[in-house]
């Protein structure tokens, strides 16, 4: 199991575009990817689940990744989340 935390960088929070970028990436892995934000919990492979987290800018997302490719999934998601603030959201910034 891989676990890590990351704040939401997009100033508008986890809205459609960043949630889409994250769910599309998570779907490429067989591992289960769960995300918690406050009291809510989401399956990162489901766009509507991620959006329903209602995560706002600066709030902390807690990831838990379990499965055969958890290492690769974790690396890829961290890379997406780390894309710097200067990049446009449409390029996948979360």
């Amino acid at each position: 199991m891989k676990q890590f935390q990351c704040p939401v960088r997009d100033e508008n929070g986890m809205h459609a575009r960043p949630a889409g970028a994250l769910s599309n990436l998570a779907k490429q892995f067989s591992s289960e990817v769960r995300v918690r934000c406050g009291q809510r919990d989401a399956n990162a492979k489901r766009l509507i689940s991620l959006m329903s987290l209602g995560a706002k800018a600066g709030e902390v997302l807690e990831f838990e990744i379990v499965g055969e490719d958890e290492e690769a999934a974790s690396d890829a998601i961290l890379k997406l989340l780390a894309q710097n603030d200067g990049e446009r959201a449409s390029e996948g910034r979360v």
């Binding site: 508008n12 929070g13 809205h15 459609a16 489901r46 766009l47 509507i48 689940s49 959006m51 329903s52 987290l53 209602g54 706002k56």
Partner: peptide
């Protein structure tokens, strides 16, 4: 209704047969 964006502009829904809608 799965979720409503805090800003009220986006709705996520799940149909009875499993479609996920935005």
């Amino acid at each position: 209704v799965v979720g409503i964006a805090e800003s009220g502009h986006a709705y996520t829904l799940e149909s009875a047969d499993g479609l996920e809608l935005l």
